[in-house]
C-alpha cells in the first residue's frame, strides 16, 4: 500500500520532470537563462566595483562637496527598491538607447551594487591603522602610492568576505530582470510554470540552479580568500 503510493508519486514526478525540462527542449530556456543571469551578474559586479571605488573615495575625500556626492549616492540607492531602480534605468534613462537589454540591466544592477560596495570599501580603508599611512608617507611615498601599495592591499583582505557576500546578494537580486523582459533563470522557471501549469518542479528547479551557482562561487571565493591570508601565518 505504502510502496504503491510512493511509486505513483514517483511516476507523476517523472512525468512532470519530462514535461517541464525535456519536452519542447524546455531545458534550453533554463540554460539560456543561466547564461543571462551570469552575463548580467558578471558585468554588474565589474561596474559595481568601479562605481564602488569611485564613491568610496568621494566619501573619504577631505572636501565637503565631494563627500556630499558619495553620501547622496548611497542614500538614494539604499533608499529605493532595486526593482524601481531597474525600471527607471531601463524605461526612463536608457529608453532611447538601443543597447542590448542585458547590458542595460547590468548597468542598473552595477549602479545599485556600487552603493553597497562603496560602503564596504570605505569601511575597509578606515579599518587600516593610521600608522600604516604614516609609515608609508614618512618613507617619502606619495598619498596615492601609500594608498595603492600599503592601505588597499590590506583593506582588500579585510573586506573580501563582505565583498563576496555582496556579489552573492547581487546574483540573487538579478532574479528581477524579468521586469524588463529578460529571460533569466527565474523568468525561465516562471515561463515553464505558465506553459505547463506545474508549479513545483520548475520553481524548485530554479531554486536548485541558483543554489548550485552560488555554492560553486562560494567555494571558489573561499579558495581565493585563503590565498589572500598567506601573510597571516604565525
Amino acid at each position: 500500500m505504502y510502496m504503491g503510493w510512493l511509486s505513483q508519486w514517483w511516476s507523476e514526478l517523472a512525468a512532470d520532470l519530462y514535461k517541464c525540462f525535456i519536452k519542447d527542449d524546455r531545458y534550453m530556456l533554463l540554460l539560456n537563462g543561466i547564461g543571462v543571469t551570469i552575463k548580467v551578474s558578471l558585468l554588474a559586479v565589474i561596474i559595481g566595483i568601479i562605481i564602488g571605488i569611485a564613491i568610496a573615495f568621494c566619501s573619504l575625500s577631505k572636501r565637503k562637496g565631494i563627500r556630499l556626492i558619495g553620501k547622496v549616492y548611497t542614500d538614494v540607492i539604499r533608499g529605493t527598491p532595486s526593482v524601481t531602480q531597474l525600471m527607471i534605468i531601463y524605461f526612463v534613462v536608457f529608453a532611447t538607447v538601443s543597447w542590448e537589454k542585458w547590458i542595460i540591466a547590468a548597468i542598473a544592477f552595477g549602479i545599485n551594487s556600487g552603493a553597497y560596495v562603496s560602503e564596504i570599501i570605505r569601511a575597509g580603508i578606515l579599518s587600516i591603522d593610521k600608522g600604516q599611512t604614516e609609515a608609508g608617507r614618512s618613507l617619502g611615498l606619495s598619498g596615492f602610492q601609500t594608498m595603492s601599495r600599503i592601505v588597499i592591499p590590506q583593506a582588500v583582505k579585510n573586506i573580501f568576505p563582505a565583498l563576496c557576500n555582496e556579489f552573492i546578494v547581487l546574483i540573487k537580486e538579478t532574479a528581477i530582470v524579468g521586469y524588463v523582459g529578460l529571460m533569466d533563470i527565474q523568468k525561465a522557471g516562471d515561463f515553464i510554470k505558465s506553459a505547463t501549469f506545474i508549479a513545483f518542479v520548475p520553481l524548485i528547479g530554479t531554486a536548485v540552479i541558483y543554489f548550485v551557482i552560488i555554492k560553486f562561487l562560494t567555494l571558489l571565493l573561499g579558495v581565493i580568500e585563503k590565498s589572500l591570508r598567506k601573510s597571516d601565518v604565525r
Binding site: 604614516e134 590590506q154 601573510s231
Partner: peptide
C-alpha cells in the same frame, strides 16, 4: 628623514 615609530608600523602584508 627616516622615521621609526613607537608601534613599528611594519607593513603586515
Amino acid at each position: 628623514t627616516g622615521m621609526v615609530f613607537q608601534h613599528f608600523n611594519l607593513f603586515p602584508h
